[in-house]
């Protein structure tokens, strides 16, 4: 194995690593915000919002991520502006993941026993107060493992950025392997970079899940 590939091209690997981390973190924040809104839509009593939330989740979950990214990459030029590969990729990732996060949040809220809502309401708290102080704190604990899993997926999925020249780890890996002609070695190092990010997260999710199981 040519460890010289890692040392000679360390700068390029790190540039890609930075792109992957930045895109994943930004997409996580974005997808959480969109996902939370959609989750609220899905459980409200307003029918139009509920319908929109369901349509959004069903549509996004049934089309490939790559397609979502292409839409943000090629689409804007029809409207007279452009999003570069990194931006289009990150927005695409956020939109795609938000559908899954919305479902995770919704499931978390539904898992809190209904009686609690009724009890808090009858003790004089408003709906919003009940949500903020009673339901959400409990739901968040339940939602953390699936959110963690979605973050792991996000990191892995950010590799599609390479297909729109999005300056991520896979993108720079291609540059490296076309110069070294050593596909195997180059990509083993790429795999290690991904594992550095994903393995600790997987481990964290497992630990949290155990803690939850012990509690309930």
């Amino acid at each position: 194995m040519e460890f010289s590939i890692l040392t000679n091209y360390f700068g390029l690997y790190m540039e890609g690593f930075y792109g992957t981390v930045l895109s994943s973190v930004l997409a996580l924040i974005g997808s959480f915000l969109i996902g939370a809104v959609i989750a609220v839509f899905r459980i409200t009593t307003v029918r139009a919002l509920r319908w929109f939330g369901t349509a959004y989740v069903e549509f996004i979950r049934n089309i490939p991520l790559l397609l979502v990214v292409y839409i943000f990459y090629y689409g804007p030029s029809a409207l007279g502006f452009t999003l570069d590969g990194f931006k289009a990729g990150t927005i695409g990732l956020a939109v795609y993941t938000s559908a899954f996060i919305a479902e995770a949040i919704r499931a978390g809220i539904m898992a809190v026993p209904k009686g609690q809502m009724e009890a808090s309401r009858s003790s004089g708290l408003s709906y919003i107060q009940t949500m903020l102080h009673i339901i959400l704190p409990q739901a968040i604990k339940l939602v953390i493992p699936p959110l963690g899993n979605q973050f792991i997926n996000l990191i892995k999925n950010s590799s599609v950025l390479t297909l729109v020249a999005g300056l991520d780890l896979m993108y720079f890996a291609d540059s490296i392997s076309t110069e070294t002609y050593r596909t195997f070695d180059t990509y083993i190092f790429v795999a290690l970079f991904y594992l550095v990010l994903t393995l600790p997260l997987s481990y964290g999710v497992r630990v949290w899940e155990r803690r939850l199981q012990r509690k309930y």
């Binding site: 892995k156 999925n157 590799s159 896979m170 050593r182 195997f184 990509y187 790429v190 991904y194 997987s202």
Partner: peptide, 22 residues
């Protein structure tokens, strides 16, 4: 664990273009 923590895109490319080197 190993496979679940790697991007599928990487696995596809690796199997097609890196494994032949071994």
């Amino acid at each position: 664990e190993l496979i679940r923590n790697l991007p599928l895109l990487l696995i596809i490319f690796f199997i097609r273009f890196a494994l032949p080197e071994v």
